[in-house]
């Protein structure tokens, strides 16, 4: 051991405060956590789905891209305000810092409200894990047909769709009751094939030999097959179920990923709320710069996660 014995007693450690170092380490665990979530999503998405049984498009699962984009914008704004809060503390303007934190809290709440609206849409359309109809071969198919029949009866009784769709609903219900239809015919008449070109740009119509999963009309029909105008094309607000291959897997991944992200957002909001309470009691000032910085690190990380979730779930 060759150490000299008379070194000066210098302090050890990184020039980082404990809180900040611990936050970076916590973020390491969080990075691994979200990597596992995103990684398994990529695997589910790119693994089993095929050309004839593709992963659902946002349109299939009632996901509006622009809502995701707005949410991205909201989170970016909140990231800016939190960094400006820290900046204000450093230039000595505690009051402005508190205002920025308040805006951050508000933006975070807006994010969660938009998310809640999206979730509500999923619940309304039954896009929930384990409840999406995928395969229409028996017995799933007959379960699906019964389900549509109930939905049609509900529409018949309570209305809620436009006249054209209402007429088509009545016809479909009559045909189901008469026992004329196979589950996949019901699916085709609910969903329609008219707007396929618009909703599936760049996708070729595929005729497949794989006859096991030919329940999705648009992707397995020959090019010259007649187009059917579906009830959902007449009235997009009709609550009628249709088959979505891998819809359950999509919903599982969607809720797991956005749910954990939303939980993290909520956690951050709690800390911002605590800061506001401190400010309200007059105990918030430049001495809290480290608290703001550490919380900010966390908040930016939450933002970064969303920066990846948005394209992965809504766009690509």
């Amino acid at each position: 051991m060759i150490h000299a014995n008379d070194e000066p007693a210098v302090p050890m450690g990184l020039p980082l405060p404990n809180g900040k170092l611990a936050m970076w380490l916590f973020l390491v665990t969080e990075i691994m956590f979200f990597t596992a979530l995103i990684g398994s999503y990529l695997i589910y998405r790119n693994g089993q789905p095929t050309a004839s049984q593709p992963w659902p498009t946002p349109h299939d699962v009632h996901l509006a891209e622009w809502i995701g984009a707005v949410n991205t914008f909201v989170l970016i704004c909140s990231s800016l305000t939190v960094v400006l809060a820290l900046w204000s503390l450093h230039v000595g303007n505690s009051k402005r810092a508190v205002q920025y934190i308040g805006v951050t809290l508000a933006l975070g709440c807006v994010f969660l409200v938009i998310k809640a609206y999206e979730y509500q849409q999923k619940f309304a359309h039954g896009i929930l894990p384990g409840r999406v109809f995928e395969k229409l071969d028996s017995p799933h198919g007959y379960k699906y047909m019964r389900h549509v029949q109930e939905q049609l009866e509900h529409i018949e009784k309570h209305g809620g769709v436009n006249d054209k769709a209402k007429k088509a609903c009545a016809e479909l219900l009559a045909d189901i009751r008469a026992g004329k239809l196979q589950p996949k015919d019901v699916n085709e008449r609910v969903r329609g094939t008219k707007s396929i070109k618009e909703t599936n740009p760049g996708k070729e119509f595929i005729t497949t030999k794989d006859s096991t999963y030919v329940d999705l009309p648009e992707r397995s029909r020959p090019k010259d097959a007649p187009m059917v105008e579906g009830i959902l094309e007449m009235d997009t607000h009709a609550h009628l179920s249709y088959s979505i291959p891998f819809g359950n897997m999509w919903a599982s991944c969607y809720f797991a990923m956005t749910g954990f992200h939303a939980l993290h957002v909520f956690g951050g909001l709690v800390v911002f709320a605590i800061m506001l309470v401190m400010a309200w009691r007059g105990r918030f000032g430049p001495q809290n710069a480290q608290m703001v910085e550490v919380t900010g690190l966390y908040w930016h990380f939450v933002d970064i996660v969303w920066i990846f979730l948005f394209p992965l779930l809504y766009l690509v």
Partner: peptide
């Protein structure tokens, strides 16, 4: 401001 107000142990390691 490099106090450890966030961490609950205020062990200040100098600079």
């Amino acid at each position: 401001h490099h106090d450890h107000s966030h961490g609950d142990h205020s062990h200040s390691h100098g600079d």
